[in-house]
C-alpha cells in the first residue's frame, strides 16, 4: 500500500512537471524574434524573456535603424531610410508580416503560432 502511494506521487509529480514544461514551451514558442540584415541573421532572442525595454541600433551602408524591444513586442522607432515604411509598420507581436526596411536591407520576423498562412496587403 505504501509502495502504491510512492509510485502515485512519483508519476503525479512527472505529470505536473510535464504540464508545466508544455506551458512554458508553448509560451516561449511564439516569442522568437530574428533580425536579418542583407539576408544574414544578426540578432535573435526571446521577446517573452525581455524584462527591461531596450533599443538596438543597426547600421548598413550608412543607413541606420533604431529598433525598440519590449516584452512580447518589437518595432522600428526611427530610420534614416527614404520611405519610413519600417517605422509605420509599428509594433510587431507575432503576426506573419515581417517588419521590412528595404533601403537598409533589414528584416525583422517574430515566429509566432499564427493560425493564418500568409498576409496580403
Amino acid at each position: 500500500m505504501k509502495s502504491n502511494r510512492f509510485w502515485i506521487i512519483i508519476f503525479g509529480a512527472i505529470i505536473l512537471l510535464s504540464v508545466i514544461a508544455v506551458f512554458i514551451f508553448a509560451r516561449k514558442q511564439g516569442d522568437t524574434v530574428k533580425i536579418y540584415q542583407n539576408g544574414q541573421l544578426i540578432h535573435t532572442g526571446n521577446l517573452g524573456m525581455v524584462s527591461e525595454p531596450f533599443n538596438i541600433s543597426v547600421e548598413f551602408n550608412g543607413g541606420t535603424n533604431i529598433i525598440a524591444v519590449e516584452q512580447g513586442r518589437i518595432r522600428v522607432i526611427s530610420a534614416n531610410c527614404f520611405d519610413g515604411t519600417c517605422v509605420r509598420q509599428g509594433w510587431h507581436t507575432g503576426g506573419l508580416t515581417p517588419i521590412v526596411c528595404l533601403p537598409n536591407r533589414l528584416v525583422i520576423t517574430v515566429e509566432g503560432k499564427s493560425d493564418i498562412d500568409a498576409v496580403v496587403g
Partner: peptide, 24 residues
Amino acid sequence: RGDDKPWRLGIRAPFGSADEYIGV
C-alpha cells in the same frame, strides 16, 4: 494547405501595424 484545409490569408489593416488584420 496539405491537410485538406483551405489556406488562410490575413488581410492587413490599412495604416495599421504589421500584425493587424481586418479579416481572413
